[in-house]
Design a protein around this nucleic acid. Structure first.
Length: 483
DNA sequence: GCCAACGTTGGC
DNA sequence: GCCAACGTTGGC
């Protein structure tokens, strides 16, 4: 830190450094901040002051814009800000907004347009009322400049990807006073709409204060007090009710969990079997290593066989039967190399992964081809001159004779790449079962979530089943279904 | 009476 | 010309 860093910053510097409007900078408070790193602010009581903050003009406490729902744009139109705590203590306090300049206001439509139309005989007679505005211009909502992006009206907007069918202002920007209950009073020639400004009493337990505009409570504390007393009052009986009567949804969930558990066990067993098949293949290859080449095997094709031709399944060109497997294998590898399958996540499964998982630093992903079939990152093993083919011989296509093909591996056209394809077949099956297992884990998670929600405080407080005919008790599954 | 949907219009 | 959002209306 240099000397200049230690010197007292100017008001402008502080405003710039803390990203706050200059007029809100309380130099004394901030100087304290710079010297005392443990200073805590806002309702969140954190020491962080790197984001936009606004100070209460009554208690001079600083609040993060995000914590109290005031954006930097909103703050530009605020003249005096009073925090919730101060407004709770003194209901006469309300956030004061800057008024627009008269020359600008002259051409703007605001709440006065409605009144002006009602008052101004020229406008009334012409019937050409200006498009009115549903704004009082005083409440917090009227001064919000940004849409929340979460309410139904925001979600309808084009900018949030909605169909633009409702075409209404963001719920948080809807004027709190415009929708107040209206009273009508008869005046000499006209019926005039007036706002019902009768203050309502705060709903807080034992509180006799006036509720804040647009709220049932005089302060956040009163709202919390009522919520607390509701929980103390209602929760014990709800828990008792929950424990005394069986719940159909809970029973269904338990049955579903049992079924999922059975399926998971089956999947794990099948995966174990497939691992065993890999081991059997390894031992078969080991057995083949000790065999000697039989020069009579591998050249048993008749002349008819040699004349037979077929078409490659990949490129479609005509090939003779003898070299068909070799051609198709190479052709597949060529075309497969042209397409990449990748994911940014490395495979994490128990045992040997069936995926290639080669990290591609250019494309920044892990290769997700089957490892055994990946033509790009898996090298074909070199075949020695003495190696035998080793493929199990069969009769009637599927019946294994127990003998192995002893043709030279390099020349055997009948069983070209047989162990690679066998391994790929097993890995594909393993992949299917892993995916099934993943699906089952997700289902289990969802069910467990709904079970814990149902038994949670919110679930118990919000949902209740009433038996309208207690004289004829229902059978268990019909009693209660709180789903 | 409520509300989704939509035509319309003032402001930019 | 575009867009936010107001006022109206038909269906429920």
């Amino acid at each position: 830190m240099t000397d200049s860093d230690l010197s007292a910053p100017s008001q402008e510097e502080i405003a710039h450094r803390f990203n706050i409007p200059e007029r809100k900078v309380k130099v004394q408070t901030l100087m304290k901040t710079l010297n005392d790193e443990e200073q805590k602010y806002c309702i969140c009581q954190s020491t962080d002051c790197t984001s936009f903050m606004i100070a209460c003009d009554k208690c001079e406490e600083w609040y993060h814009g995000v914590c109290i729902g005031v954006t930097q744009l909103d703050a530009k139109s605020i003249k005096h800000y009073y925090c919730d705590a101060c407004r709770g203590k003194d209901p006469s306090l309300s956030i004061k907004y800057k008024t627009k300049k008269p020359w600008k206001d002259k051409f703007k439509s605001d709440s006065s347009d409605v009144d002006r139309t009602a008052r101004d005989p020229r406008l009334r007679e012409s019937g050409k009322a200006k498009k009115s505005s549903r704004r009082c211009g005083d409440c917090t909502a009227c001064h919000k400049k940004e849409d929340c992006g979460r309410c139904d009206y925001c979600k309808d907007m084009k900018k949030f990807g909605g169909p633009n069918k409702m075409r209404q202002k963001c719920r948080l920007r809807q004027c709190a006073n415009f929708y107040k209950k209206k009273k009508y009073k008869q005046e000499s020639s006209d019926t005039v709409e007036i706002e019902d400004d009768t203050p309502t009493q705060c709903y807080g337990p034992g509180c006799i204060e006036c509720a804040r505009p647009g709220s049932k409570y005089c302060s956040d504390d009163c709202g919390l007090k009522l919520s607390k007393s509701r929980i103390y009052e209602m929760l014990p009986s709800r828990i008792q009710q929950w424990q005394s009567s069986p719940c159909a949804a809970e029973e269904n969930n338990k049955r579903a969990l049992e079924s999922i558990r059975r399926k998971q066990l089956e999947a794990k067993t099948r995966l174990g079997d497939l691992d065993q098949r890999h081991k059997e293949l390894d031992s078969l290859l080991e057995r083949a290593k000790h065999l000697k080449i039989d020069p009579d095997q591998g050249g048993t094709e008749t002349e008819d066989d040699l004349e037979l031709s077929l078409y490659c399944v990949t490129c479609g060109s005509e090939i003779n039967q003898r070299g068909a497997l070799r051609h198709m294998e190479k052709c597949f590898a060529k075309f497969e190399s042209q397409t990449s399958f990748g994911s940014i996540y490395k495979t994490r499964i128990e045992g040997n992964s069936m995926f290639c998982d080669f990290w591609n630093p250019q494309q920044k992903f892990y290769c997700k081809r089957l490892k055994v079939l990946c033509p790009e990152h898996t090298k074909e093993p070199k075949i020695g001159q003495d190696e035998v083919c080793g493929c199990s011989l069969v009769t009637n296509v599927f019946d294994e004779t127990g003998e192995l093909c002893r043709a030279p591996k390099r020349k055997c056209v009948k069983h070209f790449c047989w162990e690679k394809l066998r391994r790929a077949e097993i890995d594909m099956e393993r992949l299917r079962w892993w995916m099934a297992l993943d699906d089952l884990f997700e289902k289990e998670r969802t069910i467990r979530m709904s079970m814990s929600n149902r038994m949670g405080v919110l679930g118990l407080m919000l949902h209740q089943s009433v038996d309208h005919d207690p004289m004829t008790p229902m059978t268990t599954p019909q009693i209660r279904d709180s789903n």
